[in-house]
Nucleic acid binder design. Structure first.
Lengths: 213, 213
DNA sequence: ACGGGCAAACCGACTAGTTGGTATGTAGGT
DNA sequence: ACCTACATACCAACTAGTCGGTTTGCCCGT
């Protein structure tokens, strides 16, 4: 659910192919919403950032709300390959893979806030009570992201013969929650390092959870 | 930084005392912002919820932005006494007090989302890059809230002779982060219990941190 | 190879309503 | 008499969304 490209420079107008404009609009929204929030981002701004007209916007999306929901699904589509291809999947021990994910998350907090922060997490705060479509889309994204961690957590649990009163999905969601909370800390304080420190606590928790001695 | 009253019914106009209208406006903002976000909440809505006119609003605040910042400080002013008076301070063991705080937080997630959720956390997401005054105010609130936990954490650490590579303030901020993250989980999923589950993980972490055996 | 037809992609002016903010007036306490 | 605490009317700027019209790529019969 995090980290994405910014609007691309685009070529000199030999009409973009089918989904290209659509993608450009959604990806322009990524950047704007992450820094200003959804409500404060106008359709005109999104169009300007994507380099298209308002007519094009409403040709592809029937409302701003629909754009937001579609963009949340698109967010998954662009972040999932990023995390799937990341180096933390390499270790043989599944626990090392889970810890590797947390480490990657922490490394990402060394960039700019608007760039390591979560698009869908931001929208969830604004849309949960006002737009069922957007809420559903943000939850789909966060939920799927958590699911990607479940297999490794479960494997780590079984390899160590741990029978705990928590299940893999619950821990995966906790990891997502800490990540989101760390973002808020960084945004409120303006200090990126605070996000990293929270992730270190999370890492220690996960390590302790699987300690067998 | 969390949990607050909603707009009161108010009496039949024998002029409210000095700060009353001001407080009513800020407290009306609490409810509206927590469900819709700051940008989506209009000045007119806040006035209507507080039962005053727009003229009154701009008599007390020179802009919507100033209202938001002042409301963040007011948020501290109303939540601090609430937490200060809570029962979790009773135990003699400082660790029990820290765990008691987390338990209280978890119990609160049994109410409505708009009522256990954090006003300043929501605003931080929208204002961190666009309004320095609001960002500073949200951080002041979150930071002070964390500080309220520091003494107990430090006492627990010393009573158990723990020399760790984390300090009390870092753990306090982590507790705040998990709380905020749990809120996002609840908002995105629409399922309050997910917030509680994340807080259970946090509780287990803190327990393990102070285990001396 | 070619041109006519057609649908999808796109543009930008327009609208109706909402926004934050102001200007001006007034009621009540001291 | 005077100042604070409001109320009302208003405005310019901006909002999401619409609409008539234009451009572009592509299919297809010749």
């Amino acid at each position: 659910m995090t980290t994405a490209p910014s609007a691309s420079p685009r070529k000199a107008s030999p009409r973009r192919s089918a989904g290209e404009t659509r993608d450009a609009l959604m990806e322009a929204a990524f950047g704007l919403v992450r820094t200003k929030g959804l409500a404060a981002t106008s359709v005109d701004e999104i169009c300007a950032a994507a380099g298209v007209s308002k007519g094009a916007f409403f040709h592809h999306f029937k409302s701003k709300d629909e754009l937001a929901a579609e963009a949340a699904y698109h967010w998954s589509a662009v972040t999932e390959p990023f995390f799937a291809a990341a180096a933390y999947h390499a270790p043989a021990d599944p626990l090392d893979r889970v810890l590797g994910y947390i480490d990657l998350r922490r490394e990402m907090t060394e960039g700019e806030i608007a760039e390591f922060t979560c698009f869908v997490g931001t929208m969830a705060q604004e849309a949960w009570a006002t737009s069922p479509a957007v809420q559903a889309a943000t939850w789909d994204s966060m939920s799927r992201h958590a699911d990607a961690l479940v297999a490794d957590i479960e494997a780590a649990r079984q390899s160590r013969g741990i029978t705990a009163d928590w299940n893999a999905r619950s821990l995966a969601l906790h990891i997502v929650a800490v990540t989101q909370g760390a973002f808020i800390l960084a945004k409120a304080s303006g200090d990126r390092t605070l996000a990293g420190e929270s992730l270190i606590h999370l890492r220690r928790y996960v390590t302790q959870l699987f300690r067998t001695t």
